[in-house]
């Protein structure tokens, strides 16, 4: 009897589990569910409303109802990077991505069925809208976003040149994103898909274009380098010029002062002399006399030959003792 009850318990437990599984199903937080009876959708989808949490245990009719689980979370669409021309005929590779979610699981299930199809539809729709938007805008509109941003500039690098300025834009990246988003959103809505946003991830030059860009960058830098060199030479020349000017002005100033001082001293000395020598006729006479003698003393040397006549004061005695004095 005891054995029998054990077997019975186990059997009923297993049966209970099977029945439980047949009559119930769980809905995860991450999924939305709708029920079909022989392929035909029944009732409203469960846990589809983002504002109502219906996750948990639910009942179903066993065997005839099938549970279709569909992702509830936000999904990503990561587009392939595609080459496309801008309005100014520049080829760029554009890589954008989008967030989307399944908003109407029934429609989604009917029209799309699996995610791969959904992604390829999104490829088509967003890809073509991206092309349209890019083709109707210049490259700079795709690159820049803030319309009236003034860039910081390194004054030493960019002085007096147009380097370091941002080209102006009309719309900017955010507007372009918006345009793609607005154009694509209604088109995917028919498939039960809600597009949440479209963003540019990467924008780059096409490999063929990039060499030209590099060429331009190199020439820009060359320009800066040349300016630096020229500035250096110019500054140096200025300094050398200042050196010459200062040198000449210092030297001539010194000369002028020197002459002034000397002149003044000479004048003073002359004044002193003349005030003494001109004080009376006797002084003048005496000065002349002593100065003449001094001059004799200074000028007559070994290499001088002096020729005297006997009527000179010194040698008149050679002729006559009592020579008359002249």
């Amino acid at each position: 009897m005891k054995k029998f009850s054990l077997v019975l318990t186990i059997t009923s437990l297993v049966l209970a589990i099977i029945l439980f599984n047949a009559f119930t199903y769980t809905v995860d937080e991450t999924e939305q569910v709708f029920v079909t009876e022989f392929g035909k959708p029944v009732g409203e989808p469960i846990n589809a409303d983002p504002n109502k949490n219906e996750a948990g245990l639910h009942f179903k009719k066993p065997f005839i109802q099938t549970i279709n689980r569909i992702e509830k979370r936000i999904l990503e669409w990561d587009g392939p990077s595609t080459e496309m021309p801008t309005r100014d005929k520049l080829y760029i590779t554009v890589d954008n991505f989008a967030r989307w979610r399944i908003s109407d699981p029934k429609t989604y299930y009917e029209k799309i069925r699996d995610e791969r199809t959904a992604l390829s539809r999104l490829d088509d729709i967003i890809g073509s809208e991206t092309r349209n938007v890019i083709a109707s805008h210049d490259l700079i509109e795709v690159i820049r976003s803030e319309k009236d941003r003034t860039p910081q500039r390194d004054g030493t690098l960019t002085a007096n040149s147009n380097i370091g300025l941002l080209p102006s834009i009309k719309d900017g990246r955010q507007k372009l994103n918006e345009q793609i988003f607005k154009a694509a959103k209604p088109k995917v809505k028919d498939w039960g898909i809600e597009l949440l946003d479209v963003q540019f991830k990467r924008i780059n030059y096409k490999p063929g274009v990039i060499d030209k860009i590099y060429g331009r960058m190199i020439s820009e830098r060359q320009q800066i380098a040349d300016r630096f060199r020229s500035e250096g030479a110019g500054e140096a020349a200025k300094i050398i010029g200042r050196k010459e000017r200062d040198l000449l002005s210092i030297q001539s100033e010194a000369y002028r002062k020197e002459q002034e001082i000397r002149g003044k001293a000479d004048a003073q000395a002359t004044g002193i002399y003349s005030s003494a020598y001109d004080s009376n006729p006797a002084a003048a006479d005496f000065y002349q006399f002593t100065k003449t003698l001094e001059t004799y003393r200074n000028t007559l040397r070994k290499d001088t030959t002096a020729i005297f006549t006997t009527d000179s004061d010194l040698f008149r005695l050679l002729k006559r003792i009592d020579a008359p004095k002249q």
């Binding site: 004799y296 007559l300 040397r301 070994k302 290499d303 030959t305 002096a306 020729i307 006997t310």
Partner: peptide, 18 residues
């Protein structure tokens, strides 16, 4: 005095009759 000092130093002296 001056003549006495100067004349001996002279290299050549010529004294002519006037």
């Amino acid at each position: 005095e001056t003549m006495n000092e100067v004349l001996p130093q002279l290299g050549g002296k010529v004294i002519l009759d006037e």
